[in-house]
């Protein structure tokens, strides 16, 4: 087997493996959504979704995450052009947007806890915090991943391995975006409408 073919085979199996991983993560989120759907009306006499969530904030978060998907896509385009600095620039942009998103989420969590609506209060709040928090945890992993990835790109340059990492990171980040769209619709939008 010549070297090029070997690399190709190596790549295809890594991507396939990563896709299957994404699938398993989808099942995790599907379970959490099912839990939220079951528990969202179990407010235990406390606050309901309609009373708690602010649409402007959720909408802002959505826009920020969507733009971060765009910037991470731009990093891939820069990779196709083999432009190292541009890759780093767009990755940094993605990182900043991701951090802002995370900051807003933590601030909302803090706010809820401060007004006495923590996860301890009801089945609804438990499922809300864990569903949204799991997404947030994935965002944190994505942020760490971006740091490591940029580090590798800076030190080792545009190797096959680092490009593979970039592509997989993109998959991961878009996946988180899609999960968030679901969270936005099911938790915030439907909650706002009192469904």
């Amino acid at each position: 087997m010549d070297n090029n073919l070997a690399i190709k085979a190596e790549n295809s199996k890594t991507y396939l493996g990563f896709w299957i991983y994404i699938l398993t993560d989808c099942v995790v989120f599907a379970s959490l959504f099912a839990v939220y759907a079951t528990l969202h009306s179990n407010t235990n006499g406390g606050a309901s979704a309609q009373m708690l969530f602010s649409m402007p904030l959720a909408l802002t978060q959505t826009l920020i995450l969507l733009s971060s998907s765009l910037t991470s896509g731009l990093a891939i385009i820069s990779a196709l052009n083999k432009n190292k600095n541009k890759i780093l620039f767009w990755t940094l942009a993605t990182f900043i947007l991701g951090t802002i998103f995370l900051f807003l989420e933590i601030r909302e969590f803090n706010h809820l806890v401060a007004i006495g609506d923590s996860w301890r209060e009801s089945g609804f709040l438990s499922s809300y915090f864990v569903l949204v928090g799991t997404h947030g945890l994935h965002i944190i992993i994505g942020l760490i991943w971006m740091i490591v990835l940029s580090f590798i790109i800076i030190i080792k340059g545009l190797t096959i391995k680092s490009m593979k990492g970039l592509v997989m990171f993109n998959l991961f980040w878009h996946f988180l975006d899609i999960v968030w769209i679901f969270i936005f619709s099911v938790v915030y939008l439907m909650g706002h409408m009192g469904l």
């Binding site: 528990l39 407010t43 996860w119 089945g123 915090f129 864990v130």
Partner: peptide, 24 residues
Amino acid sequence: ATLALLALDRLIGTHFFTSGGGGN
């Protein structure tokens, strides 16, 4: 996911599977 939720019930006091508190 399920084990994690049970762990959270026991660890930080969520109400996923508790009797009472809106758990199921």
